[in-house]
Design a binder for these strands. Structure first.
Length: 882
RNA sequence: GGGAGAUUAGCUCAAUUGGCAGAGCACUUCGUUUACACCGAAGGGGUUGUAAGUUCGAGUCUUUCAUCUCCCACCA
C-alpha cells in the first residue's frame, strides 16, 4: 500500500497546548474510547478507582491515570475490546465535612438545617464541584469510556448496595448491637479500625494512688486520668509478689468514691508502669476484654462529643481534656498523685479529622468477616488472583487472616442509608427490626438514621458498575469479571480486599485476575507531599508547563511496581526534550519524503547494513518491550524505547541515512525512506500508550496505514529480521567512527577541518569500502583511503585500532611522537588487561562447561577481537616508538 | 513486638531468567555540520551500605549487622 502525506505544514515544535484538547475531542467523538471499537475482540476491563467526587487532581491520580490509560491503550491496540470504566465516589466523610464547612461559613450547621436540607445542599455541592476531576482526567489523556461513567450514589449502584446488605442480613452475616468502637468525636461518627491512624506522640504518664477500702493504696499509672471515673476494677498480676495479696480486696475510685474490686490477671505486665492496672471497660479495648472475662461492670462516662456524662459526677459536661486537668488537680489536692513523667506512645487519631479517637460503646452495624475473608484468601492462594508485585500477597493474607468484624454504620447523612426500620415493642422503640429492599408495610416503622461506610459501596465497584445484581444483562456477562485492578497499595485493605471479598461472595468469581499496586508519589527528597511543608506539586502546573505526555512518561518510568516514586521535576523536563527529539526525527523524515511511498520494509536482501542493523535492533526492542509488558514492567519498557530512539536510531541511522536521502540513487533513497518510516512508525506505536498526544499528532506526518494511531495495531516482533551479522558489522563502523572522534579530540584537530583518513581494513575491506561515506558525515573525514593489506603504517599519523582494522589520521607536522606512543601504550595496557581477564575466564573449565553457550561464545569473540587489536597495536609501537 | 521495602556515580533513579554496572541532572573540554542548542561530540566520576556464604560467575540468591522508610499489632 502506498501512502502520501502532506509535507508542507509540519510545525517546528509539537504545540501541545493546541493539540491536546483537539486530539482528545477527536478520539472521543469517534468513539475510540469505547470497547465497541474492537467489537469482536476479547474483552479487557479496568475499573477506575473512583476518585472523590468533589476532589481535585493530585499526582496520585496522575499516576493511576497514566498507568491505567497505558494498559487500556495497549490492549486496545492489541485488538481487545478494552474498557476503562470511569466513575466517582461519594466519599461520605470527606464530602460531608466540606459541606459542613460551607454551612459553617454561612453561620449555620447541618443540625440547624436538618437532614433533608443538608442532603439537598450536598447534592448541589456535588453538582457544582463534581465535574472538576473528570475534566482533569481528560486533560491527562485518559481514554476511558465516559458514556459509562458511574457514581456510587447512582440508582443502579445503590440498588447493588441494598441488595448486598439485605442478602448478608438474610445470611446472618450482619448484626447490630452495642459494642466498643472507635469513635470520632469531631466527626460524631463511628469509624472502622482502618480509619484510625496511630502515631507516636509524647504524652504524660500519670502515676497515682488507688486507695484501698482497708487502707493503703495501689500505685497505678495511666495516660488518660479522666478515664479513672469509669474504672470498674484494678488489676494486678497474680504472680506479682508485691501485689498478689491485694487480689479480692476493694479499691475506691478517687474523688467519686465508687467501690471496685481488685482482680488478678496475667495480662498485667509486672514490669510496666507500677505493675498495677486500672480497668476501664467502657473506654479501652483491652479493658473491654477483661470486663468480659471477669464479668466486670461497664460504665460509659462520655457523650458522643467527648464531653463527660452524668456518670462522671461533678465533671459531667466538661470536655475530656479539661476533665483530665481538673481531675488531676483535684487528686493532687487530695494527695492521691505520685508523679507524672513524659512518655512516648502511640495515640490513635482519626484519619480524616485528625482528632484523638475515643473507644466508646455505641450501637452499630457489623459484618461478620471470617467466612467472607477466607474465600478471599483462598482465591489468591490458589492463583485465581495475582497481586503485582507479589510481596503484597503476604500483607494481604496477614490482614485477612486476622480480620476483625467490619463496623459498617456511620452516623453521617451523606451516603447509602442502611435499609433497616424499627418499630416500638414492649416499650423499646427499637424493639422490632426490619431489614429489606423496601420499607415495610404497616404503621409505626421508623427508618434507620445511619448510613453505610463509603467503602461498602466502593467494595462492590467492579460488579455494580456493570449492572449487578442483574446478572442476565449482556453488559454484565461481557464486563464481569474485570481484568486488571490498578491502584495504590495504601488502599489494599480499604478497597482491594473488600472488592475481592464481595465479588467472590456474591458472584463466586474473583472480580479481576490481577491486582497491580503502585506506590505513593513523593517529592524529590522522598517526603510526602503536604500543604504544611509546602512541597505540593500540582500535576496541572506540570502539564501546563511541559504538556501532558512528559508528565505521564516521567511517572511511568520513574519507578518500579509497588515502590514509592520520588518525583524529580528535572525528569519531566528531560522527557519533554525527548518528545521534542522525536518530533524532530519525524520532521527530518517528513521533509525528506517525496510523494507516495510504499509502506512496510523492503525485503531484507535489498537492505544495506545500517538498515539491517536498525531493523534488527528494533526487533530486539519489540521482543524486550513485549516481555516487560507481560510482566507489568512498564517503566523499563519506556526507558528502552527511549534509549533505542535517542541512542541508536537518531544519532547513527538517521545521520548515515542522510547520505542516501541527499544522494542521487533513487532506489537507495526509496529504500531508506521506507526503512525510516517503518521504524519510526513502529516506535510511535510502542510509545503511544505512554505519550498518546505527541505520538498521535506526529503519526500524521509520516505515511501510515489507518485512521488514527490510537486504534493502530500494536507491533509484533519478527525474529527473521534479527541479524547478528549486520549488528556486528555496524558495530565495527560505529567503533571506528568513535575512535576517530576521540583521536581528533586528543590532538585538538579543528572540528571543522575535514581530514583524510587511511584505513588498513583487515578482514572488513568490502564493508569499509562501501560505507566509507559514514565517516565523512559522522567524524568529518573528507576521504577514506583503503590501504593494501601489506602496506606499511603511514608516517606522521595518529592511529586507532578496532578489532583487526586500523585507521590512520595523517597529522603532518602536528604529530607528537611521544604523545602518540603514550596513547598507544595506554591502549595496549587496556587491551592486555582485557585479554588477560578473558583468557582467565576461558581457561576456567567451570565457566566453559557451565555457562550457556552464547555467553561463552561472546567471551571467545571478544577475546579474538582484543587479540587482533593487540597485534595491531604492537605493530604500531614497533614502527613508531622503538 | 511482627512484617515489608530501600540502601547502586555528588543528586534522582534504572539494570526483565545470576552473564562485560547504565541513564538523566550536575561537572570538565569542545562544537551552531540545512531534524533538533529543547542539540551534538569527547571525558571525569562506582570496592553496588556491612560482613560472610552459595556459584565457573552475584547489584541480582542465602545469612549477619547497620541506617532509613512504610505497614500491621490491645502494654496501661
Amino acid at each position: 500500500m502506498a501512502q502520501a502525506i502532506n509535507q508542507t505544514d509540519m510545525p517546528s515544535t509539537f504545540d501541545y497546548e493546541e493539540a491536546e484538547d483537539r486530539l482528545y475531542e477527536w478520539w472521543e467523538s469517534n468513539g475510540w474510547f469505547k470497547p465497541e471499537v474492537n467489537k469482536d475482540g476479547e474483552s479487557f476491563v479496568v475499573p477506575m478507582p473512583p476518585p472523590n467526587v468533589t476532589g481535585a487532581l493530585h499526582l496520585g491520580h496522575a499516576l493511576f491515570s497514566s498507568l491505567e490509560d497505558l494498559m487500556t491503550r495497549y490492549e486496545r491496540m492489541r485488538g481487545k475490546a478494552a474498557l476503562w470504566l470511569p466513575g466517582t465516589d461519594h466519599a461520605g466523610i470527606a464530602t460531608q465535612l466540606q459541606v459542613e464547612k460551607l454551612l459553617q461559613s454561612e453561620g449555620t450547621s447541618r443540625v440547624d438545617v436538618g437532614r433533608e436540607e443538608f442532603l439537598a445542599r450536598t447534592w448541589q455541592w456535588k453538582e457544582e464541584k463534581g465535574g472538576r476531576i473528570q475534566a482533569q482526567l481528560r486533560k491527562l489523556g485518559a481514554s476511558c469510556d465516559w458514556s459509562r461513567e458511574r457514581f456510587t450514589l447512582d440508582d443502579g449502584l445503590s440498588e447493588a448496595v441494598t441488595e448486598v446488605f439485605v442478602r448478608l442480613w438474610e445470611q446472618g452475616l450482619i448484626y447490630r448491637g452495642p459494642r466498643l468502637v472507635n469513635w470520632s468525636p469531631g466527626l460524631m461518627t463511628a469509624v472502622s479500625d482502618l480509619e484510625v491512624e496511630s502515631k507516636e506522640e509524647e504524652v504524660l504518664l500519670y502515676y497515682f494512688k488507688y486507695p484501698l477500702k482497708d487502707g493503703g493504696y495501689l500505685p497505678v499509672a495511666t495516660t488518660r486520668p479522666e478515664t479513672i471515673l469509669g474504672d470498674t476494677a484494678v488489676a494486678v498480676n497474680p504472680e506479682d509478689e508485691r501485689f498478689k495479696d491485694y487480689i479480692g480486696k476493694t479499691a475506691i475510685v478517687p474523688i467519686i468514691g465508687r467501690e471496685i474490686p481488685v482482680i488478678g490477671d496475667d495480662y498485667v505486665d509486672m514490669e510496666f508502669g507500677t505493675g498495677a492496672l486500672k480497668i476501664t471497660p467502657g473506654h479501652d479495648f483491652n479493658d473491654f476484654e477483661l470486663h468480659e472475662k471477669h464479668d466486670l461492670e461497664l460504665i460509659n462516662i462520655m457523650n458522643r462529643d467527648a464531653t463527660l456524662n452524668e456518670n462522671a459526677g461533678d465533671y459531667a459536661g466538661m470536655d475530656r481534656f479539661d476533665a483530665r486537668k481538673q481531675l488531676w488537680a483535684d487528686m493532687e489536692a487530695a494527695d492521691l498523685t505520685i508523679k507524672t513523667e513524659k512518655y512516648l506512645t502511640r495515640i490513635p487519631r482519626s484519619q480524616r479529622g485528625g482528632e484523638v479517637v475515643e473507644p466508646l460503646v455505641s450501637t452499630q452495624w457489623f459484618i461478620k468477616m471470617d467466612d467472607i475473608a477466607a474465600k478471599a484468601v483462598k482465591a489468591v492462594r490458589e492463583g485465581d488472583i495475582k497481586i503485582v508485585p507479589e510481596r503484597f500477597t503476604k500483607v494481604y493474607y496477614h490482614w485477612l487472616e486476622n480480620i476483625q468484624d467490619w463496623c459498617i454504620s456511620r452516623q453521617l447523612w451523606w451516603g447509602h442509608r442502611i435499609p433497616a426500620w424499627y418499630r416500638e415493642k414492649d416499650g423499646d422503640p427499637e424493639g422490632e427490626i426490619y431489614v429489606g429492599r423496601e420499607a415495610p408495610k404497616g404503621d409505626g416503622w421508623v427508618p434507620e438514621e445511619d448510613v453505610l461506610d463509603t467503602w461498602f459501596s466502593s467494595g462492590l465497584w467492579p460488579m455494580s458498575t456493570v449492572g449487578w445484581p442483574n446478572e442476565d444483562t449482556l453488559d454484565y456477562q461481557k464486563h464481569y469479571p474485570a481484568d486488571v485492578l490498578e491502584t495504590g497499595h495504601d488502599i489494599l485493605f480499604f478497597w482491594v480486599a473488600r472488592m475481592i471479598m464481595m465479588g467472590l461472595w456474591f458472584t463466586d468469581k474473583p472480580p479481576f485476575h490481577t491486582v497491580y499496586l503502585h506506590g505513593l508519589v513523593r517529592d524529590k527528597e522522598g517526603k510526602k507531599f503536604s500543604k504544611t511543608i509546602g512541597n505540593v506539586i500540582d500535576p496541572l502546573d506540570l502539564t501546563a508547563e511541559y504538556g501532558t505526555d512528559p508528565l505521564r512518561f516521567t511517572l511511568i518510568t520513574s519507578g518500579t511496581p509497588g515502590n514509592d516514586i520520588n518525583l524529580d521535576v528535572e525528569r519531566v523536563d528531560y522527557n519533554a526534550r525527548f518528545i521534542n527529539k522525536i518530533w524532530n526525527m519525524i520532521k527530518l523524515v517528513n521533509m525528506n519524503l517525496d510523494g507516495e511511498l510504499e509502506l512496510g520494509l523492503p525485503d531484507k536482501s535489498e537492505l544495506d547494513i545500517p538498515s539491517r542493523w536498525l531493523v534488527s535492533r528494533q526487533q530486539k526492542l519489540i521482543q524486550s518491550v513485549q516481555k516487560l509488558f507481560d510482566n507489568y514492567l512498564y517503566g523499563e519498557a519506556g526507558n528502552q524505547i527511549l534509549s533505542f530512539m535517542w541512542d541508536e536510531f537518531a544519532p547513527w541511522y538517521l545521520e548515515i541515512a542522510k547520505h542516501n536521502l541527499y544522494g542521487e540513487n533513487e532506489a537507495e533513497k526509496t529504500k531508506t525512506r521506507r526503512v525510516m518510516v517503518h521504524v519510526l512508525d513502529t516506535c510511535l506505536r510502542l510509545l503511544h500508550p505512554f505519550m498518546p498526544f505527541m505520538t498521535e499528532e506526529a503519526w500524521k506526518y509520516i505515511p501510515h496505514d489507518g485512521e488514527a494511531l490510537i486504534i493502530a495495531k500494536w507491533p509484533e516482533s519478527d525474529a527473521t529480521l534479527i541479524d547478528e551479522e549486520a549488528e556486528s558489522q555496524m558495530m565495527l563502523i560505529m567503533d571506528m567512527i568513535q575512535a576517530v572522534r576521540k583521536t581528533r579530540k586528543e590532538y585538538n584537530v579543528d572540528p571543522s577541518k575535514r581530514i583524510t583518513a587511511l584505513v588498513a581494513p583487515g578482514s572488513q575491506r568490502a564493508l569499509l569500502e562501501k560505507y566509507d561515506y559514514a565517516f565523512g558525515r559522522l567524524c568529518n573525514v573528507a576521504t577514506i583511503e583503503l590501504l593494501a593489506d601489506d602496506a606499511p603504517a603511514p608516517e606522521n599519523s595518529a592511529s586507532a585500532v578496532v578489532r583487526d582494522s586500523t585507521i590512520y589520521l595523517p597529522l603532518e607536522g602536528m604529530l607528537d611522537v611521544e604523545k602518540e606512543c603514550e596513547r598507544l601504550t595506554n591502549e595496549r595496557e587496556k587491551v592486555t588487561a582485557d585479554i588477560k581477564k578473558r583468557e582467565g575466564k576461558l581457561a576456567n573449565a567451570g565457566f566453559v562447561n557451565n555457562a550457556p553457550e552464547p555467553v561463552v561464545q561472546r567471551e571467545r569473540d571478544s577475546l579474538a577481537e582484543s587479540q587482533a587489536e593487540l597485534q595491531k597495536i604492537d605493530g604500531l609501537l614497533a614502527s613508531l616508538c622503538q
